[in-house]
């Protein structure tokens, strides 16, 4: 009865990459672009200095989203708590509302049911926003990669700036990861999205394949849905 993973991939759907395209755009990462830069076209001296200042600001102060998923969240709390005290680096104010957070630490395995919700929480955060993937599960699904319900890494759903490996990573590792993120922001770098096949779509907009037709009676046209395809992810 064991579910051996299939070697061949069937019924593969082409990954939809709307978010990636929107996100990457042309030129420097969109997250750092200002209206002023658009107006000026190039980057005059004053804007460069201003950018540097803004990067310093963003790199030194961040509110974290209070977001716990699985095992890693326990180590994440330890990182905030007495011994490791992430707040030393200006990154230790947890906000429960995504509207007020800058950084989302994704601490754990993402499963199909949670995927759309995580995407929604990410969308609710105001730009510029950053994501730290904590633990093996957010890299590849980790020890649960072969599970029928597991999304193989956070990057399938949202763009991730820093991956902290480990199962779970030690608090020291997470502190290092956050520091690396701050360093990158201070240098105005951020990562492009590499893989991203899972998108939230309107059910009515989906291609009318077998599955969609079967579910047509259950799901409203306007409902948002996310395709989950275990075999299709790398």
């Amino acid at each position: 009865m064991s579910q051996d993973p299939k070697q061949s991939i069937q019924e593969s759907a082409t990954p939809s990459t709307d978010t990636r395209d929107a996100r990457m755009g042309a030129g420097v990462d969109d997250r750092f672009n200002s209206k002023l830069r658009e107006a000026f076209g190039a980057s005059p001296f004053i804007l460069t200095k201003f950018d540097e200042f803004m990067n310093w600001v963003r790199g030194n102060s961040m509110f974290m989203l209070q977001f716990g998923i699985a095992c890693c969240s326990i180590e994440m709390i330890h990182t905030y708590a007495i011994k490791h005290d992430l707040d030393r680096f200006g990154a230790g104010v947890p906000r429960a509302s995504p509207r007020q957070a800058d950084v989302m630490i994704v601490p754990g395995t993402i499963v199909s049911k949670f995927g759309p919700r995580m995407k929604r929480v990410y969308d609710q955060m105001p730009e510029p926003k950053f994501v730290v993937g904590m633990g093996s599960c957010t890299i590849s699904g980790g020890p649960f990669q072969e599970g029928y319900n597991v999304v193989k890494g956070a990057e399938e759903i949202i763009p991730v700036d820093i991956h902290v490996p480990g199962c779970p990573p030690r608090p020291e590792a997470l502190v290092y990861g956050v520091l690396k993120l701050q360093e990158r922001i201070r240098h105005g770098e951020s990562s492009p999205v590499v893989v991203k096949p899972y998108e939230l779509e309107r059910f009515g907009d989906l291609e009318k394949d077998e599955l969609v037709q079967k579910l047509a009676s259950e799901i409203d046209e306007d409902d948002l849905v996310m395709r989950y395809n275990w075999a299709d992810s790398p």
Binding site: Q3, I9, E11, K113, Y148, N149, V212, R227
Partner: peptide, 18 residues
């Protein structure tokens, strides 16, 4: 999924109610 004839490679749809 834990039944004998389940095919893990089939795509699935997950909804998000507003």
């Amino acid at each position: 999924p834990l039944a004998g004839d389940y095919d893990q490679t089939k795509p699935q749809l997950v909804t998000l109610a507003e």
